[in-house]
Amino acid sequence: MNTPRIIATQDMTRAHLGMLVWALIVGLSFPAVGLMSEGLPPLLLTAMRFAIAALAIWPLVRREPGRWPSLPGLALYAFMGLCLAGFFGTMFWAAHRVTALSMATLYVSVPLLAYCLGRGFGVERPAGRMLGTLLLGALGALGLAWAQTGGRLDDLRLGIGEAVYFVGCLASALYPVLSKWGLNQGWLSQRASLRTFWSLLTGGALIGLLGLIWESPHALAGMTLSDVLVLSYLGVFSSGVTFWLLQRATAVLTPGAATAYTYLVPFVSMLLLLIDQPQRVGWHWLPGSLLVVVAIAMLLRRDATRHDDSRRTEAA
């Protein structure tokens, strides 16, 4: 009778550790993106990243039983692909219309949106402590975004561009919620690799379609060998590995808990800045950093407490 509890505890630990690695990979990916040549079509590049990631995962899933989804599962993967296409499409559309501070401010809403949407889909339990943890993490992430701009609040604006990008954030928050809901319904595979593969495949196809409509495929002719190598790295690690880590965590954690690790991404970026340009990191980075670290620690403590409570309940 103890084996299931031990496995559940190990799965929970792996999920949290995996999302810590997820935040590290995503944070390290931003400098890699900066190595790409300018003028390349971003949506088509994202579609290529997803295609590379799907190809990298295919050897792991091609012999898996049940590798082909059912019709309800395929329909759900299509909706999940729409979420990915909606987020990346609005992000690239808003990139030249919205300030960096506004985008960072709106993006910290994703874990809170995931929690609220999860409540609507029945995959999140009402938990005031969880909501408080997410709010604390959001404040910390906002503090880091403010520090990154040098404290210039005049960069914070609200307009049509911000509204469109917020819709993209809503789509991003809906993705793990649909994954969790599909798992509970039995429509999606229990294998994280299969869910990752089909998510990347459908999402990449839809993003590629948007790229063909909004962008010029001829611009891809400007890619250099260095661009191809960087894109391959981003496809395998920043897309393939991170999606797999997120899907693995989604099976164990709630959508709000999994997406809360997005708060660590600006913290990783700050650490990179501290290593590369230590003179730019001052005391104004400290409040946001502390709040983010405390929020993640509270999240870990919350799940550990839940396991302890369940053990005591079963022992009684």
Results as ranks from 00 to 15, higher is better:
residue 188 L to D: 00
residue 278 P to C: 06
residue 206 L to A: 07
residue 145 A to N: 12
residue 218 H to D: 14
residue 165 Y to A: 08
residue 262 T to N: 09
residue 278 P to W: 00
residue 231 L to A: 14
residue 238 S to T: 06
residue 221 A to F: 10
residue 251 A to S: 03
residue 214 W to S: 01
residue 148 Q to N: 04
residue 252 V to K: 05
residue 136 L to I: 06
residue 264 L to N: 03
residue 235 G to I: 03
residue 191 R to I: 07
residue 229 L to K: 04
residue 146 W to Q: 08
residue 225 L to W: 02
residue 184 N to Y: 03
residue 249 A to T: 15
residue 254 T to E: 12
residue 236 V to E: 03
residue 182 G to L: 00
residue 234 L to E: 03
residue 274 L to R: 10
residue 261 Y to P: 08
residue 250 T to K: 00
residue 187 W to I: 04
residue 205 A to S: 10
residue 244 W to Y: 09
residue 148 Q to C: 05
residue 211 G to V: 11
residue 228 V to L: 13
residue 224 T to K: 09
residue 137 G to C: 06
residue 150 G to T: 13
residue 263 Y to R: 04
residue 225 L to V: 13
residue 172 S to M: 12
residue 202 T to M: 14
residue 215 E to C: 03
residue 158 L to W: 09
residue 161 G to T: 11
residue 185 Q to V: 00
residue 254 T to W: 04
residue 161 G to L: 10
residue 170 L to M: 15
residue 230 V to T: 13
residue 152 R to D: 15
residue 255 P to Y: 03
residue 166 F to E: 06
residue 210 L to A: 13
residue 223 M to G: 05
residue 259 T to P: 06
residue 241 V to D: 04
residue 229 L to D: 07
residue 240 G to N: 11
residue 262 T to Q: 13
residue 261 Y to A: 02
residue 235 G to P: 12
residue 223 M to K: 00
residue 152 R to Q: 07
residue 239 S to G: 09
residue 204 G to V: 11
residue 241 V to A: 06
residue 171 A to Q: 09
residue 190 Q to L: 03
residue 210 L to V: 14
residue 206 L to Y: 08
residue 247 Q to H: 06
residue 225 L to K: 10
residue 222 G to D: 07
residue 251 A to N: 07
residue 176 P to C: 05
residue 163 A to L: 13
residue 275 I to G: 15
residue 207 I to C: 02
residue 146 W to L: 03
residue 232 S to Y: 13
residue 139 L to V: 12
residue 188 L to W: 05
residue 154 D to P: 04
residue 178 L to C: 12
